[in-house]
Measured scan of single mutants.
Amino acid sequence: DHDVVPEDKFQETLHLKEKEGCPQAFHALLSWLLTQDSTAILDFWRVLFKDYNLERYGRLQPILDSFPKDVDLSQPRKGRKPPAVPKALVPPPRLPTKRKASEEARAAAPAALTPRGTASPGSQLKAKPPKKPESSAEQQRLPLGNGIQTMSASVQRAVAMSSGDVPGARGAVEGILIQQVFESGGSKKCIQVGGEFYTPSKFEDSGSGKNKARSSSGPKPLVRAKGAQGAAPGGGEARLGQQGSVPAPLALPSDPQLHQKNEDECAVCRDGGELICCDGCPRAFHLACLSPPLREIPSGTWRCSSCLQATVQEVQPRAEEPRPQEPPVETPLPPGLRSAGEEVRGPPGEPLAGMDTTLVYKHLPAPPSAAPLPGLDSSALHPLLCVGPEGQQNLAPGARCGVCGDGTDVLRCTHCAAAFHWRCHFPAGTSRPGTGLRCRSCSGDVTPAPVEGVLAPSPARLAPGPAKDDTASHEPALHRDDLESLLSEHTFDGILQWAIQSMARPAAPFPS
């Protein structure tokens, strides 16, 4: 592969990997390779389809078979030569091979799209000592099968071997295949498990690692696999990028399955594409389908809103127990993405979901129960707010008499603000006073009005108090039968009158 990737590009890729991570280095090298001529790309395919690569990765054979028959990708048995050289000459001794072996032994695996480039050397060096003999053996194999790289107009793939297949390693990572398949204008990513390549439709969760975000852009890794992070704060999961590491605690105790298979379609829109997988259930989501939507993949363990709600429900009964003089119970939860139609709101002032922060849900004790107040519409209280300059209440639009249902020339009671006709409430011909108009209920007259088809109010509507207090003497005590009587009149003013009279009014101040 030294004929494909020059030394300066190799060093530039290593520097970019240390600065921005393996995914960015892979993407940059792939983009550079696509700008080369067809001879360089053909050399790339020839390096990929060597015999030892085909033996190690069985899924490469179907890719090789898909090439046109007129494309010669065979390799000479006596060494490598550029395709432009007409004579089959043995190339001179390859010093770059020693360079590659020494550099890969030092860096474990470079971040390139060629056999030198995919593992994360920093994480491997940190986690190597417990498994040094086995990992050293794996390093000797890295130059042979560490990076199976493929690129063409139909298929483009980048393979990364790992030393996680050490025997006896619980939940060992089998390997990473960062794979971009450009077929019919689409893009897919796969993962390699035990020599087999699994596409998103049959993606397997190998051991402790999972394909957290099938994305090839942005600074985030394709698999949430930063070796420096180790395990999740809650004892979460091992990262795919942690090559040759000792077994780590796999999943939280509440995880239903340690080796679950995540779905390959969004649980909201039932469509495929780039998904984020939940650590607590097999569901996966688009970032845009979450509520609120996320802009980037959160670091650490992530769970959907259903799993978060289940966790909150487990903690909430203990938080609601009476604990005198104790601060509110704080339950730190990872930043969760909410699927459509589901929402768990945190306290005000918290950062938005999706940031690399930890939301704190506070379970406050329930407030003391209070008697429910009568629910009145805002339009129902409008007549009470229509007060004239002299303190006389004006008529609201649409006000109707509670007896006849007519809204023409209605009066407004100064005591309960109900609309009424003087002739309907006082049919006996009582003279109307000039000021202080009161309806039949507030004036103490319980004589029913002779209106055909309208039920008369119940005599129990009024329960006047002592006459010594004029204001308190007109406080009506309405009961269920009074409400039914008012409802039978089918008037809004009657219902409003009952609601206003049912509310307690402050006692009249004593004259000074």
Rank of each mutant, 00 (worst) to 15 (best):
G341S: 13
G354V: 15
L275R: 09
P256E: 05
L385I: 05
S291P: 05
C307T: 15
P464C: 13
R480D: 09
P389Q: 08
E314S: 12
A418Y: 05
P256G: 12
L290K: 13
G241L: 10
T301P: 08
Q243C: 13
P292V: 09
T447A: 05
W302H: 04
Y361E: 04
P351N: 02
H363A: 06
Q313R: 10
A340I: 08
P328L: 11
A463W: 15
C442V: 02
Q257M: 13
G494N: 10
P317M: 11
A371D: 07
A504C: 05
Q243Y: 13
S431L: 11
K468N: 10
P256K: 14
C401R: 02
P476S: 12
V246Y: 13
T471W: 13
S245C: 06
G434A: 09
S488C: 03
A267G: 07
D470I: 07
L308D: 08
G407R: 07
C277D: 10
H479I: 11
K468S: 14
A499P: 01
V268Y: 12
S473P: 11
E263W: 14
G391W: 13
L364W: 10
P506H: 04
H490D: 06
V454F: 07
A419R: 08
D470E: 07
H259A: 07
A467L: 08
M503T: 12
R400M: 07
V315D: 10
R303C: 13
P256F: 09
P433R: 08
L337C: 12
V387S: 11
T357Q: 08
P476I: 13
P383T: 09
P249Y: 12
P383Q: 15
H382Y: 14
Q501D: 01
S254E: 07
L294S: 12
G436R: 09
G354F: 15
Q501T: 15
G244P: 05
A417H: 14
T414N: 13
G434S: 11
A428S: 13
P317Q: 09
T430G: 10
K468F: 12
E320F: 13
H259N: 10
L483S: 05
A319T: 14
H479S: 09
C416H: 04
P450C: 14
V344F: 12
G436S: 12
D271E: 08
G388H: 01
V268I: 08
T430H: 07
D356K: 03
Q325A: 09
K362R: 01
G272Q: 02
H490L: 03
